[in-house]
Design a protein around this nucleic acid. Sequence first.
DNA 1: TGCGTTACGAACTTTAAGGTGCCTACTTCC
DNA 2: GGAAGTAGGCACCTTAAAGTTCGTAACGCA
Lengths: 137, 137
Amino acid sequence: MVNKAEYDAFLARCPSRQLLDRIADKWVTLALAALRSDCAGEPRPMRYSELARTLAGVSQKMLTQTLRALERDGLVTRTVVPTVPVTVTYELTALGLSLHDTVRGLKAWAETHMDDVLTNRASYDTVRSGAGDPPRS
Amino acid sequence: MVNKAEYDAFLARCPSRQLLDRIADKWVTLALAALRSDCAGEPRPMRYSELARTLAGVSQKMLTQTLRALERDGLVTRTVVPTVPVTVTYELTALGLSLHDTVRGLKAWAETHMDDVLTNRASYDTVRSGAGDPPRS
DNA sequence: TGCGTTACGAACTTTAAGGTGCCTACTTCC
DNA sequence: GGAAGTAGGCACCTTAAAGTTCGTAACGCA
């Protein structure tokens, strides 16, 4: 693999790759969806603990890490409110909102085509393990 | 994390998540793009070795693994041609083509917005490490 | 008679991501 | 005075993914 380094550099700089690496993150799209308040009305700021409850199953570490990354990229804003015990709210930016809208294109594809994919997958698996042809001529 | 298992199960069954897991794979989108012959005209069947050359930097293992996954999902077809040393060609299916078109939506977003993201990222990093405010109030 | 080609399979090693648990500072409430 | 809640930081551990290496079968060729 002679040019692996160059190739990695190429991959690392490719905008599409960077985007994929960001949104493929396990919690990123869920956080976007939560902040978007997908299931109920308007986007609104949410508190850290509220997000933690909404994304059931996320660890504190991963939630913090995810939110930091999103803030760093300008996809959400982080606001510290100096209340009694300090509270922090997160809110989607315009950029984050537009990203989430784009991701919904993927969601649409998934919802209309993933059944086909799963069917293909199942039939592939049965043909492979069933008494079809001995592995491969 | 009481309901972690249930949550994982939920995630595992979510069509959007499954799709993301598939296309976020390092080589999947590149393979789709290659088979689509993105840079030059019409989609056409390609040989294994041709793909290996096009996706410079891919290991044989990962290429095989990627193509198998795509075949399993019905996104590409695999055709064995019994020539002297056996050759194998891969071609996008209609499903694979439609997926790639969807992914190009992401590409479009990335190309128009990733610069903003990178700018945000850079300024975030300088504010954090520079002599701005001591870490956080 | 080896050597090279094609398209892999299997085993082994390395590396990165994700998860868990323990810690903090501040204040208020019991 | 001690517990509880808020929003994390830090360090360790475990597992899953990616990469590397070696081997294979069939054949053509020098």
